[in-house]
Amino acid sequence: MFSTATLWIPFTIVASLGQVARNAMQRSLTGPLGTWGATNIRFLFGFPFSLVFFAVVLTISGDHLPRPAASFWPWLALGALTQIIGTGMMLVAMNDRSFVVTTAYLKTEAIQTAIFGFVFLGDQLTLMKVVAILIASTGVIVTALRFGGERSFAELRPTVIGLVAAAAFALSAVGYRGAIITVQGVSFVTAATYTLVWGLFVQTVALTIYLLWRAPKILSAIVGMWRPSMLAGFMGAFASQFWFLAFALTPAANVRTLALVEVLFAQAVAYYSFKQPISARELGGIVLIVIGVALLVAPGSALRLR
C-alpha cells in the first residue's frame, strides 16, 4: 500500500534544487533592481504560478475550496512577513560574501527551526534528530567561518545579517507549517497549495505597497525586466510548492535539516556560474552536513526523547 510518510524527503530535495536556482537568479537581479526589488520578484511573479498550481491541484484532487480555521491567518502572516525579511537580508548578505558561504549561514536555520517548532507547535524532537541537527549545524559553521586575520565590523556585518536572515526563515517555516496544519477536510496537497497562494498574495501586496511608497521607479524597472523576473518567479513558486508539501507531512525541523543539502547544490552553482572556488575547510564542513542529513533520514531517527 502506498504511504506518504517519507514523501517529504524527495519533496525537500526538489525544493532545495529549485531554491538554489531561484537564489542565483535573484542575486543577478539585485544590481539593477536593488535588494527589495529583487526580493519582490519571487512574490510578484511567483503568485500567478501559484494560482495555476492550485487550479491544477483542485482539478486533480476533486477537493472543495478550503475553509481554514481562524488560526490559519496569524500563522500565515508570521510565515509570509518573516520570509520577506529573511529574503531581503539574504540578498544583502550575498552581495557581501560568496554565494556558497552565505547559503551556509542561512542553513543555521535548521536548529532554530527545531527550537521554534518545539516551542510554538509542540513538534517532537527525537534523539537522532537532535544529533543530526547538531552535526549538520557544526558542518555549516565549519563551512562558513573564516579563521585568522582581523575582524572589522564590515567583515562581521554579512555574518550577522546571514544569521538573522536564518532566524527569520526559521520563523517563516514554523509559521507556514502552523498554517498548513489548520487546513482540514482536504488532502495535504490542497492544504499546502492553498497556503502557498495566500502566502504569496500577502507578500506581493505588502512589498508592492512598500515599493510604491518608497521606490516607485523600482516597480517600473521590474516590469521592464519581466523576462528574467518571470523565470525567477516561477522557480520561486516551484520551490515553495515543494517546501509546503514537505511541511504538510513532517515537522519543519526535519525539512530544514534535510535542506542542508542545498549547500552542496549552492557550491555547484558557485563553482560553475560564479567561479568561486571551494577550500578544504569548506569541503570538511560539507562532509559533516552530509553525515547529519544521513542520520536525519535514517530509520532509527524515530526514537523520541523522554
Rank of each mutant, 00 (worst) to 15 (best):
L264S: 12
F47D: 08
A179L: 04
L219Y: 08
I60G: 06
R97D: 15
S273L: 13
G34E: 07
V140Q: 00
A15I: 02
T30Y: 08
V263T: 04
R304K: 15
T126R: 05
L295P: 00
I9A: 00
M235Q: 08
V52L: 15
Y105H: 04
V142G: 04
F238C: 11
G148W: 04
F72E: 04
M90V: 15
A110N: 01
A77V: 14
L171G: 14
F72P: 00
G18T: 00
F274L: 05
F247I: 06
F147A: 08
F274Q: 07
S61A: 03
A270T: 03
G18P: 02
P251Y: 05
S172A: 15
G284L: 10
V183R: 00
S301I: 03
R146K: 11
R42I: 07
M94Q: 11
Q276N: 10
G162L: 08
G122F: 00
R27P: 07
P10C: 07
G300W: 08
G79V: 04
R27Q: 14
V100R: 06
L211A: 08
Q124F: 00
L145M: 04
S240P: 01
A302F: 12
T39D: 08
T204S: 15
A191V: 04
G199K: 03
L295T: 02
L29M: 12
S220V: 10
L106N: 02
I291K: 02
R146G: 03
V297I: 15
A77F: 13
L121C: 09
G285N: 01
A24E: 11
M225C: 09
L288F: 11
G285E: 01
R151F: 05
R306T: 12
A270M: 06
M235T: 15
R22H: 10
S187Q: 09
S98A: 12
F244I: 01
K107Q: 14
V100F: 10
L91P: 09
S137D: 06
G46C: 10
V269E: 03
N254G: 02
L145N: 02
N40D: 13
S3R: 11
W75T: 07
A77R: 04
V174Y: 04
P158R: 02
V101L: 11
P68G: 11
L44Y: 03
A302R: 12
V142K: 02
Y271V: 03
F49N: 06
I85R: 09
F47R: 07
S273M: 14
M235F: 14
L245G: 00
